[in-house]
Amino acid sequence: MSIDEIIQSRRSITSFKPDAVPTEEIIDLLEVAKWAPNHKMTEPWRFLLYTGEGTETFIQAFINSQPAPGGEVSDGVKRKADHFRSIPVHLVVVMPEDPRQKTWDEDHAAVSAMIQNFQLAAWARDIGMIWRSNDWIYNPTFRESIGVEPGEKIVATLMLGYIKDVPKPKKRTDIKEKLTIIDKYSE
C-alpha cells in the first residue's frame, strides 16, 4: 500500500485476534515511529509495555482505580476489564511534564506524531489499535500501579493486536470547508 492508502484505510480497532504480538515486533514498530519530528531532538517519550501475563498488571491497575461504593467492583468495570483481557497488548505512552508551556506543547506534539507513526507502521503490518485517553489515566492509583513516575503525563494507552474486524470508514468533512486561503496581503 502507498502511504496515502495506509493513512486513509487506518481505523481504530477494538476487536482483536487472540494471537500474541511478539515484543520484538512492537520494538521494531517503535524504532520506526521514533522518526517523528521533535523539536531539538528531545525524544520526549517513554513506553510501558504490558503483554502476556503482564497485561493483568494493567487491568488490575484499571480496576483498582475505579472507586465503587462498599468496595465492590461494578458490573461495568468488570465488563471493561474482561474486554481489556481480550486485547493482547497494552502500551502506555508517557511524556515529561514541563512547566514551560512552549516545551509542553512541543513535546506533546512530538509524542502525538510518534504515536501516529506507530499506528500507521502497525497498520501496514496488519496490527491495529485504539488510542485511549480515558479519565482513569489521571487517577493516581492507576498511574502509580502501572509505573508512571511523578512529573510524567500519560498521553495514550494504546490497546493493540492483530486485527479481527475493520470498521467501515466514517465520513470526513471536505477539507475545503476547513480551509481558509489567504492569497493577498492586506493591512
Rank of each mutant, 00 (worst) to 15 (best):
F58Y: 15
E144D: 13
L160R: 08
I63K: 02
R143Q: 11
F16H: 02
P140Q: 06
S9Q: 05
T103W: 03
R132C: 10
A122E: 01
F142D: 04
F84I: 07
E177A: 14
G151S: 09
Y185V: 12
S186K: 14
R125E: 12
H83Q: 14
I7A: 13
A20W: 01
P99S: 11
E149S: 13
N139F: 09
E149V: 12
H108R: 15
V94H: 00
I87M: 10
P167Y: 03
S15L: 12
R10K: 06
T57H: 13
G76K: 12
E97I: 10
E43R: 13
A68V: 07
T23M: 10
K80E: 12
T141L: 08
S9A: 05
P88Y: 03
G161A: 04
G128E: 03
E177F: 10
V89C: 08
V166P: 02
V32C: 11
K34C: 14
E97M: 12
H39K: 09
K164Q: 14
I154C: 04
S9W: 02
G161R: 02
M95Y: 01
P37N: 10
S12T: 13
E144R: 14
S15G: 06
T157S: 12
K184N: 13
Q116I: 08
N117Y: 03
L91A: 07
Y50V: 04
T51L: 11
W104Q: 13
A113M: 15
V148T: 06
E43W: 01
E149T: 12
S2G: 10
F47K: 02
I137H: 04
R10C: 00
E56W: 03
K102W: 11
E5V: 07
F58H: 02
L30S: 07
A121D: 08
S133T: 14
K78Y: 05
R143I: 04
M114G: 09
G128V: 02
I130V: 15
R11M: 01
P44E: 01
L91E: 05
E187Y: 08
G54L: 12
N134T: 11
K178D: 04
T42A: 13
K40V: 10
Q66A: 09
P37Y: 04
W123Y: 09
D28V: 03
K80H: 12
G151F: 07
G71W: 03
I13T: 00
V92R: 02
E31S: 13
P167E: 02
P37E: 05
W104N: 06
V93K: 01
Q66C: 07
I26S: 07
L91F: 03
S2Y: 01
A124W: 01
E25H: 09
P44R: 04
I13Y: 00
K78Q: 15
E5A: 15
K80Y: 14
V89Q: 06
K171N: 11
I182K: 15
F16G: 00
M1Q: 08
I130H: 01
E56G: 11
I7E: 11
R79Q: 15
Q101M: 13
K176E: 11
G76V: 03
D174P: 04
R125L: 00
I115D: 08
D82I: 04
T141F: 06
T173C: 08
